[in-house]
Design a binder for these strands. Structure first.
Lengths: 148, 148
DNA sequence: CTAGATTTAATCGTGTGCGATTTAAATGGT
DNA sequence: ACCATTTAAATCGCACACGATTAAATCTAG
C-alpha cells in the first residue's frame, strides 16, 4: 500500500512529525501554564507583549501569525483575567492597542521558571534543540518571502 | 525587557517556531486538500488508513496521537462524506473498526500529487527537510519514552 | 460466579485556528 | 468635498484539540 508512492513517504512523515511534535509541546506546557490559568496560545501572546508592551492587535498578529478572528476573543479572555487592557487608538479609531496590566507584568516573573522546566522535560541536547529551531526558522522565513 | 531572562529566549523561540511552522504547513495544505473536501487532520487520518485499512479507533489514536474525543467526530464526518465506514467489533463490542470505502480507497490516487505539490511550495533543500524530520522524530521518540 | 477494576468509545465544555464576511474608520484620486 | 478603495478589528461558522466525564463491555480477583 504505502509502497505505491515511495517517493512521497518522506513528505507525509515530515508534515505529520511537525504536527505531532507541535501538539506534544503544547501538551507539555499545559500543566505548567494551568498553574497560572493560561492556555498555550495565551502564553504565546503574553511572551510577545512581555517583549514589547503596548502593541496593536495587528502587530501581535504579525508576530504570532494569528489573525484578529483568533486574537480578538483570546485578548478578550486575557482582559477578563485582568492581564491586559485594550484601548482604541485616538489617532486612528480602527486600531486597538493592547497593554499589560500590573498583574500581567507581574506574571512575567511568575512564569520565568517555565522554560527551564520545559527544558528538563526533554532529553534532547541543547545543540540539537538549537539546530531544530534554526531549521524551523529557515522554513518560516522562506515561507514569508513567498506568501507575503 | 527580554534580556531579563536571557537564557530562556532560546526555549521561547523554539516553542514558538514549532507552533508557527506547524500552522504554516497546515495552511499550505489547505488549498490542496479543499479540492477533495478534506481538512488537514482528516488527511492525516486517511494517510494512516491508506497505510493500513481496518484499524480500530484506538490504533488510529496511537498513530496520530489523537484521542477519541477528537477522532470520533472526525471519523463521523469522514463517514458522512462516504470515505470510511465504522463497524463495531463482534468479538469485543467496545471496539470500533474503521474501514475505507471504495471512494476512500480511490481518493488515495487522487491525493497522490499533494506531497509533490507541497514540496514545490518550499525552497528548502531535501537534505534540510530530512534533517528537520529526523530531529522532530527524535524529539517525539524521547517524549514517548517519558510520557508513555 | 460476581463485584470492582479496566478498557474503549462516545460525550461534554472550553478555547483555539481560520476562511469568509461585516463594520467602521481612514485614505486617495478626482 | 465626494465616493471608491483600503485597512483594522470584530463577527460568524465550522472543525479541530483536549481535559474531564460517562457508558458499556470485558476482564479479574476472590
Amino acid at each position: 500500500m504505502s509502497a505505491k508512492f515511495p517517493d512521497l513517504n518522506l513528505d507525509k512523515q515530515l508534515c505529520f512529525s511537525l504536527y505531532a511534535a507541535s501538539r506534544q509541546v503544547t501538551r507539555l506546557y499545559q500543566p505548567l501554564l494551568k498553574r497560572h490559568d493560561l492556555t498555550y496560545p495565551q502564553y504565546i501572546v503574553l511572551l510577545i507583549l512581555w517583549q514589547t508592551d503596548g502593541l496593536m492587535v495587528k502587530d501581535i498578529g504579525h508576530q504570532s501569525q494569528l489573525k484578529s478572528n483568533t486574537l480578538t476573543p483570546l485578548l478578550k479572555r486575557l482582559e477578563q483575567s485582568g492581564l491586559v487592557s485594550r484601548k482604541r487608538a485616538k489617532e486612528d479609531e480602527r486600531q486597538c492597542y493592547v497593554f499589560l496590566t500590573d498583574r500581567g507584568k507581574a506574571l512575567e516573573n511568575e512564569c520565568a521558571c517555565i522554560p527551564m522546566e520545559m527544558m528538563g522535560q526533554t532529553d534532547m541536547s541543547l545543540d540539537k534543540l538549537m539546530q531544530l529551531k534554526s531549521l524551523l526558522d529557515e522554513f518560516l522565513q522562506l515561507q514569508e518571502k513567498h506568501g507575503g
